[in-house]
Design a protein around this nucleic acid. Structure first.
Length: 859
DNA sequence: GTCTTGCATGGGT
DNA sequence: AACCCATGCAAGA
């Protein structure tokens, strides 16, 4: 009897007594810590005889009468919590009367079909234990909400019946303040009244109306099953039984030696809560037919409260499932775990199934088709037509859907959304699977694929400021395609506050998944890469900030400690004095203003912000540049402003049409995913953070792909000369490396159009008209016309960064080539693999290239 | 061409 | 080894 393990002198746990306990004490009720209240002889005897509340709580509030026999029961008191059940229609019933009411049913977890159908709620409302008994078939089950759940012979046990860990473990669980409630904890009383509010010594009886101990309804079963229904003194019987079970439970707990956390946290919680003696029967499912732990309802109090709402409805958590991609997909089929379907849903014999009304959290009623498919001599249960509901609840793959039953027998769906991606990654177990893992669920523990994926994701989800992490919003502006890529191809976890799209189950990786739906095709990967690169192009590195280069999935990502600067693109040029200047276009009037070379302008910049030239700090001020100068200066793709101005000047009527064309062009450019389209004339590339405005290296002097100023074949500007020289240099290097091909290479140099069969393939920019002066072509080597057209033409509009990709360090196995867009539209960039891999390119401009001469001098 | 339906497949438990 | 179940996929609407 003595249960005290402390060496300190102890007082009787009954606060009304507090008598000093000697060596001998009597064990009272089970406390929430899992220990037992130590009582003095007098109190202990009163407890054992079932008179404790009558003796000590008589003046406390919370006494209620059994609706059937009128017996007074002190509700809400831990001492007598198991002596009554809450009636659906209100009121309580003593356990004796309850026992008379319940009998088991073959599948009593499910109410009569009539209860499944809408339209009968009123009838259901008055459903009492007797109603349930009328539909029951065999055996006493005091859990009117789901009597079958406690039919160990016919049905899998509810989590409430799973093993309870040792008291120590239970205590530990309590210490962790698990917020989960026992699945069988039905009563909203348990929701509204914190368990802790129910004093262990019964002092909180005053709150009993609001704190009807729910737990007795969960598991009084244990007492009843172990006691003869004819027990003359139910109270005493219950107490006695409890005590015997307590001992039994202790041994069970130890012998089964479950890890502290393998059980649903809910069970853990209840295993130690103040309602506790009912857990004597808690045990792990004994046979293989029982639910897998992953389906155990791990519903939290909060969720229960959400489901039960303000009503005093009693919610019975049945099972839950983490939504898969299929479940949450458009197809609208939710695969139900077989056991769950067979145990908790109405039996179906016809594959066509039956309509199954389900209520959601908002009280909305949905009717799904509950059916099965024959599958390998078995069945596969599905709920069809769940898509609207899933969408309504804004659930996605990875979220958990819970199935509960309200007192009326109606299914109520709850949900648990996975937390945001970042917290997922950082906080560890968050989703159900992880929770299960924490519980020791072996299946969950093996779910390493998810971890792999998480790592994979985290790879992309740099915490530091990188264009990648910031490119979402920007890409949204810079191109629909890019945006699409980000949304579809990047794991949603990258997106802040987004949930993972994929439940990550069994799959080794999303990218490498066997699932076609999850797999990112090579082409898409390429698209993704380009998108990242484009994103990089949008950012200026913060001043004096050297980025950290990270290689992710072969993509070079720069990370900055500080957020990158998104600056307004400008045209770098030189003035008469040879000083580096920039030409910036006013957002409002489209006029170009000269600003110092060092200036970094905000993305939206207007004349009024022209601090350097007060004379031209108003839009009304004339533009310094003539239109012709401007035309020379501007890359063709960015002539919108100039054209607009010119058109306005020459023919005001044409302006509108021109704007329309520009809009179309912009759309086209954006469609092509060119992040530069929206802005860049010359942006400081983050690929080369040292390239500041004014930098005139080979990379910086070139406009972005497709946007460049068209140079004529005979053009001898510095840029053209540089490119030509560089091309020559490249070929020479190649010549050295491939001595046996030296002769061929020289020929190619002289007749570049023939070089297409090899590595270097530069394509013309067909954006120009017939007089276009583009370069070398490889693809068209078998096309004589193309050859002629392309011969001796240099493309000065190649993407400089593509060239950088040629760096053997970064991309030794591939070479970028510009593929001519036959429509004359923006170039598309593809990377092709090189088998030879022996071309060394993209070294810094050779020394002979006088970079200082490459700036376009427009002054 | 798209959507729906029902079965098949195969990795995971 | 049997079963489960996520998902593919073909046929039909």
């Amino acid at each position: 009897m003595a249960s005290s393990s402390s060496s300190l002198p102890k007082l009787c746990f009954n606060s009304s007594c507090n008598q000093l306990l000697g060596d001998h004490s009597r064990r009272g009720w089970r406390r929430r810590t899992g220990e037992f209240a130590d009582l003095c002889d007098r109190c202990g005897i009163a407890f054992e005889e079932g008179n404790f509340c009558e003796s000590f709580h008589l003046n406390a509030s919370g006494w209620r009468s059994c609706e059937s026999c009128g017996k007074q029961i002190h509700c809400g008191c831990i001492v007598s919590f198991h002596m009554f059940v809450l009636l659906d229609a209100g009121g309580i019933e003593c356990i004796t009367c309850t026992k008379k009411s319940f009998i088991l049913t073959p599948n009593p977890a499910w109410p009569p079909p009539s209860l499944l159908l809408p339209g009968l709620p009123e009838r259901i409302k008055d459903l009492s234990a007797k109603n349930w008994s009328s539909i029951a078939a065999s055996g006493p089950v005091p859990w009117r909400q789901a009597p079958s759940l406690f039919n160990p012979e016919l049905h899998p046990k509810m989590p409430s019946e799973f093993n309870i860990p040792t008291s120590k473990k239970l205590s530990d669980s309590m210490d962790k303040k698990e917020n989960l409630v026992f699945s069988g904890r039905l009563m909203n009383g348990g929701l509204k009244g914190d368990a802790s509010q129910i004093s262990e010594n019964g002092k909180s009886g005053s709150k009993c109306e609001d704190q009807q101990s729910p737990y007795v309804n969960d598991n009084p079963h244990s007492a009843i099953l172990k006691n003869e229904p004819s027990s003359p003194n139910p109270d005493l019987t219950l107490n006695t039984t409890s005590k015997s079970e307590i001992a039994e439970h202790s041994s069970i707990s130890v012998s089964q030696a479950q890890p502290p956390a393998p059980l649903p946290a809910a069970a853990n919680y209840n295993g130690v809560d103040s309602f506790g003696e009912g857990q004597a029967q808690i045990g792990r499912p004994q046979d293989r037919n029982q639910l897998l732990p992953r389906y155990w309802p791990k519903i939290t109090e909060q969720e229960l409260q959400q489901i039960s709402g303000d009503s005093n409805s009693v919610i019975t958590p049945l099972f839950e499932k983490v939504l898969t991609a299929s479940d949450a997909g458009k197809i609208g089929r939710l695969v139900l775990p077989k056991k769950c379907a067979e145990v908790y849903l109405p039996p179906i014999s016809n594959p066509e199934g039956i309509p199954l009304p389900v209520q959601d959290l908002k009280g909305e009623e949905w009717v799904f088709q509950f059916r099965f498919w024959p599958n390998n001599n078995s069945r596969m249960y599905v709920l069809e037509g769940v898509s609207p509901c899933i969408q309504s609840m804004q659930l996605r793959a990875g979220d958990t859907i819970t199935f509960n039953r309200n007192p009326h027998g109606k299914l109520v769906m709850g949900c648990r959304k996975t937390s945001s991606a970042s917290s997922d990654q950082k906080k560890g177990p968050v989703n159900t699977r992880d929770k299960a893992s924490a519980h020791g669920d072996s299946t969950a523990k093996k779910s390493k694929p998810g971890e792999v994926t998480a790592q994979h994701n985290s790879k992309r989800n740099s915490v530091s400021y990188s264009p990648l992490t910031m490119n979402k919003a920007n890409l949204a502006d810079s191109g629909r395609k890019s945006n699409k890529v980000v949304e579809n191809k990047c794991d949603a976890k990258v997106k802040p506050a987004a949930k993972p799209d994929i439940p990550i189950k069994r799959k080794n990786s999303i990218l490498g998944s066997k699932s076609k739906r999850l797999r990112i095709e090579n082409e898409d990967m390429m698209e993704l890469k380009l998108t990242w690169e484009q994103a990089q192009g949008l950012f200026h590195p913060p001043p004096n900030n050297v980025p950290k280069i990270v290689l992710i999935d072969g993509c070079e990502i720069e990370e900055f400690e500080e957020p990158p600067i998104i600056g307004r693109p400008t045209i770098v040029a030189k003035n008469n004095l040879g000083e580096i200047i920039q030409w910036a276009q006013c957002e409002d009037c489209f006029k170009w203003r000269k600003v110092p070379g060092y200036a970094i302008l905000p993305s939206r910049w207007t004349c009024s912000e022209n601090l350097w030239d007060p004379k031209r700090s108003l839009c009304s001020a004339d533009q310094e540049l003539t239109l012709d100068e401007l035309e020379d200066l501007l890359p063709s793709g960015n002539m919108a402003g100039a054209k607009k101005m010119k058109a306005e000047k020459e023919d005001p009527d044409s302006l509108e049409a021109l704007e329309g064309l520009d809009a179309l062009a912009n759309v086209a450019i954006q469609e092509d995913g060119d992040a530069y389209a929206s802005s860049s004339l010359h942006t400081t590339t983050t690929k080369h953070p040292r390239h500041r405005p004014g930098c005139s290296c080979i990379v910086c002097i070139q406009p972005p792909s497709g946007k460049g100023h068209k140079h004529k074949q005979t053009c001898t500007c510095n840029l053209c000369m540089t490119v030509k020289r560089r091309f020559k240099t490249l070929m020479l290097r190649r010549e050295i490396k491939q001595s046996e091909k030296a002769e061929t290479a020289r020929q190619k140099l002289q007749q570049p159009e023939q070089s297409g069969d090899d590595d270097i393939q530069m394509f013309c920019d067909a954006g120009n008209s017939s007089s276009s002066h583009n370069l070398v072509n490889g693809e068209g080597s078998n096309n004589d016309q193309s050859k002629k057209k392309l011969s001796n033409q240099l493309d000065l509009n190649i993407h400089p960064e593509r060239e950088e990709d040629l760096s053997p360090v970064l991309n030794s196995g591939s070479i970028t080539r510009m593929i001519q867009d036959g429509t004359g539209g923006p170039q598309k960039v593809k990377k092709i693999s090189r088998s030879g891999g022996n071309l060394v390119v993209s070294q810094p401009p050779p020394p002979e290239v006088g970079v200082e001469n490459y700036s376009t001098d427009v002054a």
